[in-house]
Design a protein around this nucleic acid. Structure first.
Lengths: 140, 140
DNA sequence: TGAAACTATTAGAATAATTATAATTGTTAC
DNA sequence: GTAACAATTATAATTATTCTAATAGTTTCA
């Protein structure tokens, strides 16, 4: 699934969240929102620098962290070797295919959490992540 | 919570799973099952080598991986910076306190998953992990 | 306008977790 | 006792991520 957005649309997307739109941030945002895929920092680094390098690894991390902090994307922790960034911030969950290391969205309505335990005293609920680990038979 | 087990009990615990009990493995197992805590590889490395070093980092990783593979412990992926190892392998879920980086068990019966989506074609269900992220107010 | 003072952004270098490799030690079978 | 195999180790490499210094941008005020 791809989703074409104009540079202007992406610029105001950032502005609406209080993020100063710089060249690097626009490139990374464009990439995330046009692809609508689950990308790792490394994926973003490769894609944004396809051809000549223009954006450093550190900037990729800064930018992804900033976007996540401002609710533009969401971190998904399912793979011990890396964090994924999901441009879909609506409530939903994930299949994690341990054979391929890929994530697949699960629409929120397909997972029904009937009961949640009481949050420990003095703590604030931040979010609930459901990861359904699946595997292609015959693979490790 | 601590749980005292004799060296013999731990030895047969490993044997029952088809794991040859070596000195290093017994030390690590003893540590995991007496503490009943969520430990990272680094934690295990520190604890097992309190005093003089006897077990290398690589052996710690090998051993934890082996134990997990044989169902003696369970990997919990909640913190992007490291993997936790949980000696409790009964079905249950976790709070992850993002302020302190600590895990707290949630008994299985306190989380009720009413519906699960159909596993993608040709895939095999491996497990379902529910991570409830919580935070101490005022912390990042 | 123009430059000092400050803030925000970027990226090269450093760090931490983990894994791969190859050497070493221990065990088993005959 | 020794060949064949399995387990352990250390080193070093790799990968993901963060730190910090440097750069670019913005504001203040003379």
């Amino acid at each position: 699934m791809t989703n074409n957005m104009s540079a202007d649309q992406i610029t105001s997307l950032l502005r609406n969240r209080g993020i100063t739109p710089t060249a690097q941030r626009l490139e990374i945002a464009e990439l995330l929102f046009s692809r609508c895929e689950h990308l790792s920092a490394e994926d973003v680094f490769q894609l944004v620098n396809a051809g000549a390098q223009r954006v450093s690894k550190a900037t990729v991390y800064n930018t992804l962290g900033l976007f996540a902090e401002h609710g533009l994307i969401r971190e998904v922790i399912a793979d011990p070797t890396k964090v994924f960034f999901d441009p879909n911030t609506t409530p939903h969950h994930h299949f994690f295919d341990i054979s391929s290391g890929k994530l697949i969205d699960i629409p929120a309505e397909q997972v029904h959490i009937g009961a949640l335990p009481e949050v420990p005293a003095g703590m604030q609920l931040e979010g609930v992540d459901v990861i359904v680990r699946v595997r292609r038979p015959g693979t490790v």
